[in-house]
Amino acid sequence: MSRLDSMLRRLTAQRDGLNWAAEQVRNLAGDVLDIGLGNGRTYDHLRETLPDRRVRVIDRVLQCHPSCVPPEADFLQGEARPMLDKLAQERSPIILAHYDLGFGVKEKDIAEAAALSPAIAAVMAQGGIIVSGQPLVGFDELDGPQGIPPGRYLFYQVR
């Protein structure tokens, strides 16, 4: 499979997974969290898909497309762990989180996701859904929507 085809499959799975997760949490009270802003595509999709929700964002640097800059109050700039700890202190329940951090080195990405899992759990509302590009630990894994190949994207629920 070409890298282009692989990217298209990943982005389609990401979109379909986020849409599915948004439906799962529609009746829960709480905010949305995008962990890893990047150029802002996912953040833009989340704010369009869930326009009545506050969408918080964590990233090391703000380098997204100008149309995707989150409001200053919703952007937590810095390393993920301290920003998650800060968010946990606010006690604003997160009903949907998207985890998309990575270095591009599989072993390193998996280790970071596992290390950050407890901090992610600390901000999540009971029943909340996490959509992740990396395996997380300590959550109940869900099947997610039909049509997404196993392992392409991962879906978790907080109990």
Score class of each variant (00 low, 15 high):
residue 44 D to F: 12
residue 84 L to K: 13
residue 77 Q to V: 14
residue 74 D to W: 12
residue 82 P to S: 01
residue 117 S to N: 13
residue 48 E to H: 15
residue 56 R to S: 08
residue 89 Q to A: 14
residue 32 V to Q: 02
residue 130 I to Y: 01
residue 118 P to R: 08
residue 134 Q to P: 03
residue 76 L to H: 11
residue 115 A to S: 06
residue 101 L to K: 03
residue 106 K to N: 12
residue 77 Q to D: 10
residue 89 Q to W: 03
residue 146 Q to E: 12
residue 40 G to L: 01
residue 92 S to K: 14
residue 88 A to E: 03
residue 41 R to W: 10
residue 101 L to R: 06
residue 112 E to A: 15
residue 145 P to S: 01
residue 124 M to P: 01
residue 56 R to V: 05
residue 117 S to M: 12
residue 93 P to L: 12
residue 79 E to N: 10
residue 95 I to S: 02
residue 99 Y to C: 08
residue 139 F to L: 13
residue 49 T to F: 03
residue 65 H to I: 02
residue 102 G to L: 06
residue 149 P to F: 00
residue 137 V to G: 07
residue 60 R to H: 02
residue 31 D to H: 11
residue 51 P to L: 00
residue 108 K to F: 10
residue 51 P to T: 00
residue 131 V to S: 07
residue 39 N to W: 10
residue 63 Q to N: 14
residue 135 P to T: 04
residue 92 S to I: 13
residue 95 I to H: 05
residue 62 L to H: 09
residue 64 C to R: 02
residue 83 M to E: 10
residue 125 A to I: 09
residue 69 V to R: 09
residue 132 S to H: 03
residue 45 H to Q: 12
residue 71 P to F: 04
residue 92 S to C: 14
residue 62 L to C: 11
residue 94 I to R: 09
residue 52 D to W: 00
residue 95 I to K: 07
residue 126 Q to S: 03
residue 134 Q to A: 13
residue 37 L to C: 01
residue 75 F to A: 11
residue 90 E to F: 01
residue 37 L to W: 02
residue 130 I to W: 02
residue 59 D to R: 09
residue 89 Q to D: 14
residue 141 E to G: 05
residue 129 I to R: 11
residue 137 V to T: 14
residue 64 C to A: 13
residue 138 G to L: 01
residue 88 A to D: 02
residue 43 Y to C: 00
residue 38 G to D: 01
residue 116 L to S: 05
residue 100 D to A: 15
residue 153 Y to W: 12
residue 31 D to G: 06
residue 72 E to T: 08
residue 36 G to C: 06
residue 108 K to L: 12
residue 90 E to R: 13
residue 71 P to N: 04
residue 31 D to S: 11
residue 118 P to Y: 04
residue 116 L to T: 04
residue 107 E to S: 15
residue 78 G to D: 05
residue 38 G to R: 07
residue 66 P to T: 05
residue 109 D to M: 12
residue 78 G to L: 13
residue 119 A to P: 03
residue 101 L to F: 12
residue 147 G to Q: 09
residue 53 R to T: 00
residue 136 L to F: 10
residue 109 D to S: 08
residue 58 I to M: 10
residue 115 A to H: 05
residue 86 K to P: 03
residue 116 L to P: 11
residue 107 E to K: 14
residue 113 A to M: 01
residue 119 A to D: 01
residue 100 D to V: 06
residue 112 E to Y: 13
residue 93 P to F: 03
residue 41 R to E: 00
residue 125 A to R: 15
